[in-house]
């Protein structure tokens, strides 16, 4: 069976969940092989993690010459790895960076590219993807018709399934051109960990908008009671109440959790674009005419500053 390359998402010493989701998908298409671009001495740790999800091989590419620059060196490294291999597909977790890597790689390998797939299936020896488009209003099915399908897959697109793989590490040497090292990362300030789940990966997202008036405490307390990630509308971000990384919507994160709780958010089209494929949607808003109520499975017309603390208390009580 042909190999399926899965680019490993590795942050702060840990393999992130989307990697396991993609390995699970890869198994449907061929033989899963993980690609780890990172410090050579951490390849063994990565192999331990990914072999539990079926990775037969782990191609380890040392990042000494790669980190410190924007996507171009990673695209070159993947091109060199892919060349000469008979691959069923190349899968990358959908992130801004990975989409750019995939874009460059598609041109290098003369292969078709599909971004933000929410499902990937084997179909008659090929690969079919499902995407949610036009602000989540349409679902489309697509396939790559040229070269090796290069697909970026959104988090939560598959439930990770454990399956033993050999996880054999193979160090791969790559040559990075000077031309690829032209956009430099001059400074990086890591974001403070919130201790909450990642917005795009969370099963539950609790968001706040302009209606919070800048006081996110009720939103955060509810999120913690539910084990949820915290999100924000652009109005809340533009007011400086939350950093941009919290923004849900067209120009923020697109989330698709099991449960989305919108608080003090009117439900503008750009916000909907980021959350309307959530499985269950709940809203608290004091305006019964707010468009968000058109989307909800359950809505409360009321002041979030009263409803949320009472709800949090209720939940904590029921949890005992």
């Amino acid at each position: 069976m042909s190999e399926v390359l899965v680019l490993v998402d590795y942050v702060n010493g840990a393999v992130k969940k989307p990697t396991f989701e993609l390995l699970t998908i890869a198994k449907r298409l061929g033989t899963p092989a993980a690609v780890f671009i990172g410090p050579a001495d951490q390849a063994a740790t990565v192999a331990e993690a990914v072999k539990k999800y079926g990775a037969e091989k782990v191609y380890a590419i040392d990042d000494a010459e790669i980190k410190g620059y924007l996507v171009a060196p990673k695209a070159e490294a993947l091109q060199q790895l892919a060349q000469g291999k008979d691959l069923a597909a190349i899968l990358l977790p959908s992130s801004a960076e990975n989409k750019e890597i995939a874009g460059r790689l598609a041109i290098k390998l003369e292969s078709g590219l599909i971004t933000d797939a929410v499902d990937v299936a084997e179909a008659g020896g090929g690969v079919t993807t499902t995407q949610s488009v036009f602000a989540g209003n349409y679902t489309v099915q697509a396939k790559v018709t040229k070269g090796t399908p290069i697909i970026t897959v959104k988090p939560n697109s598959a439930a990770p399934e454990e399956s033993a793989g050999a996880g054999a590490v193979e160090q791969v040497a790559v040559t990075i051109s000077d031309g690829a090292k032209t956009a430099q990362i001059v400074a990086t300030q890591p974001r403070q960990a919130t201790g909450r789940p990642e917005l795009t990966e969370a099963a539950i997202v609790v968001s706040g908008g302009r209606g919070t008036g800048g006081n996110f405490e009720p939103v955060e307390n509810l999120a913690d009671a539910l084990g949820a990630a915290v999100g924000a509308s652009r109005a809340a971000v533009d007011s400086g109440w939350k950093p941009h990384t919290f923004q849900v919507g067209q120009t923020g994160k697109v989330v698709s959790p099991q449960l989305y709780v919108a608080n003090g958010i009117s439900g503008a089209i750009q916000h909907r674009a980021g959350m309307q494929t959530s499985k269950t949607i709940v809203a608290v808003n004091k305006d019964e005419e707010a468009p968000i109520f058109e989307l909800v499975d359950f809505g409360v017309v009321g002041d979030l500053h009263a409803v949320l603390p009472a709800l949090t208390q209720e939940i904590n009580q029921r949890k005992g």
């Binding site: 079919t128 099915q141 040229k146 019964e288 709800l311 209720e314």
Partner: peptide
């Protein structure tokens, strides 16, 4: 190099239940 094979409008969300909060009933 890619082909869209099918498109479908997402089924509209069925209207949910909306309640008014009165003295904590909403929570």
């Amino acid at each position: 190099w890619t082909a869209v094979e099918e498109t479908a409008a997402r089924p509209p969300r069925t209207a949910g239940e909306i309640v008014k909060d009165e003295d904590g009933s909403g929570a």
